[in-house]
Design a protein around this nucleic acid. Structure first.
Length: 191
DNA sequence: ACCGTGATGTTCT
DNA sequence: GAACATCACGGTG
């Protein structure tokens, strides 16, 4: 079952936790690819020094201020794209970074997009999974209640909370347990 | 296995 | 001009 708008209109921590075990799908001209979400991080807007929305609304962060259930993608380190799901209602700038998937459908297409053969190298990190799913900068603002990219209910997995990854610049916020993982899954970004 | 480093472009100071 | 929600590769053990 495809998740509806109301799933995304809740607070970012709830959305991040509940996305674990769901299935994210892209359906593009080259084919359909999907994976079970096993790692997420919540970015909680104005109270979170690690969030891109921490310093308010800009051209880049304006999507945070719309309703939940839309896609935020951005370029990181000049080479890789990270895929986020906007959470909460209008004017509450929260988002969930998708950090890792367990590959399910379209594995051959993922391999060719990534130029890798090992299953573990396909979706075990935010840049990797964006590439496997065929996500580009054009996905900025895409509607998760549409047909190109969407999320479905799938599995019920045991969830653990940990500190977020690679946000040492964020001071005290780096200590919050706002990363959620499917306990013990071998496709996580850090093993 | 674990480092160290280089690639690359957008955003914000 | 620095910093950046990363990854791949080559070195060493």
């Amino acid at each position: 079952m495809k998740l509806e708008r109301k799933f995304y209109l809740r607070d970012g921590l709830t959305v991040a936790r509940e996305l674990i075990g769901k299935k994210i799908i892209t359906n593009l001209p080259e084919g359909l690819t999907s994976g079970i979400i096993i790692e997420t991080e919540a970015y909680m807007g104005t109270v979170d020094a690690a969030s891109h929305a921490y310093r308010g609304k800009t051209e880049r962060t304006k999507i945070f201020y719309g309703a939940g259930g839309f896609v935020y993608v951005y370029l990181i380190y000049g080479m890789y794209l990270c895929t986020n799901v906007i959470a909460n209602v209008e004017n509450v700038p929260e988002a969930v970074l998708i950090r890792a998937l367990e590959p399910v459908d379209g594995v051959e297409l993922m391999k060719s997009r990534r130029n890798k053969n090992n299953l573990r190298d396909l979706c075990s990190g935010p840049g990797k999974l964006s590439q496997s799913l065929g996500i580009t900068k054009n996905f900025y603002g895409a509607d998760l209640c549409g047909e190109e990219i969407f999320i479905e209910t799938a599995e019920n997995l045991k969830v653990e909370a940990t500190k977020r990854i690679n946000i040492d610049y964020a001071g005290e916020a780096a200590n919050y347990f706002w990363r959620f993982v499917a306990a013990g899954n071998k496709f996580l970004s850090v093993k």
